Amino acid sequence: MTTTVKLPPSLEQSLRRQCAVEGRSISDLMRDALTAYLAKVPQAPPSAWSLGADLFGRHAGPADLASARHAHAADVWQEKHARRRPR
């Protein structure tokens, strides 16, 4: 990947001077500097999606559970209490 970076003249001079001292290209020096910087930056916390990715899709309930939750809850309630009644 090629990226263009705009540097103030003083930073560009320092960069070129350091590259000459080390005998390295600007690209090599900037790659190493970015690698070192990114290794120190705290990583973003994981998203809710990545935390629950192994759980998504495991529910085998009714497809309309979100929109008809009250009706489904009433059905579950009736089934539960029907089993408790002596016949």
Rank of each mutant, 00 (worst) to 15 (best):
H59A: 13
A39F: 00
W77M: 09
L15K: 00
L29I: 02
L38A: 15
V41W: 01
D64Q: 00
L34S: 10
A33Y: 04
Q43R: 09
E22G: 03
D54G: 02
L34V: 12
I26F: 06
D32F: 05
P46N: 12
A44F: 09
T35L: 13
H72L: 05
Q78W: 09
T2L: 07
L34C: 14
A33H: 01
M30H: 05
A20T: 08
E22S: 06
G57W: 00
A68R: 08
G52H: 15
A63E: 15
R17A: 14
Q43T: 13
D32S: 09
R84N: 04
H59N: 13
T35M: 07
S14T: 07
M1G: 04
F56G: 00
G52E: 11
E79S: 15
T4V: 05
D75R: 15
P9G: 08
P46S: 14
Q43L: 09
P42A: 05
S47C: 03
M1Q: 03
H70S: 11
I26E: 15
M30V: 15
A20Y: 05
R17V: 03
S14Y: 02
V41Y: 01
T4I: 05
K40I: 01
V5C: 02
A36E: 14
V41T: 10
A33N: 00
R58D: 06
L38H: 06
L11I: 03
Q18W: 10
R31A: 09
A60L: 08
L65P: 00
L34R: 03
A20N: 09
R24Y: 03
S14I: 04
T35A: 13
A63P: 02
W77G: 01
K6R: 15
A74F: 07
R84Q: 13
A82E: 11
P8I: 08
L65E: 04
V41K: 14
D28K: 10
T35I: 09
S67H: 02
L65R: 08
Q43C: 05
R83G: 10
D32M: 08
D28R: 11
A33E: 01
D32H: 04
T4R: 06
W77A: 10
E22W: 05
P86V: 10
L15H: 02
T4Q: 06
R87H: 14
S67A: 10
W77I: 05
R85F: 10
P8D: 13
P46E: 15
R31H: 07
S25W: 08
W77E: 11
V76C: 08
A44W: 08
L15N: 01
H81L: 06
A60R: 13
R31E: 11
T3E: 10
K40P: 01
A68V: 00
K6S: 12
R16H: 07
S14L: 12
K40L: 10
H81A: 00
T4L: 04
G57L: 02
A82T: 11
A20E: 11
T2Q: 11
G57I: 00
P86S: 10
V21W: 09
M30F: 15
L7Y: 02
W49P: 00
S50T: 14
V5F: 13
T3C: 06
L7H: 02
S50K: 06
A36I: 02
A53G: 01
S67R: 06
V41L: 13
R83S: 14
D28T: 11
Q18V: 11
R24W: 06
S27I: 04
D64H: 01
H70M: 04
A33T: 07
G57M: 02
S67K: 06
M30Q: 10
T2Y: 06
L11Q: 10
L55R: 12
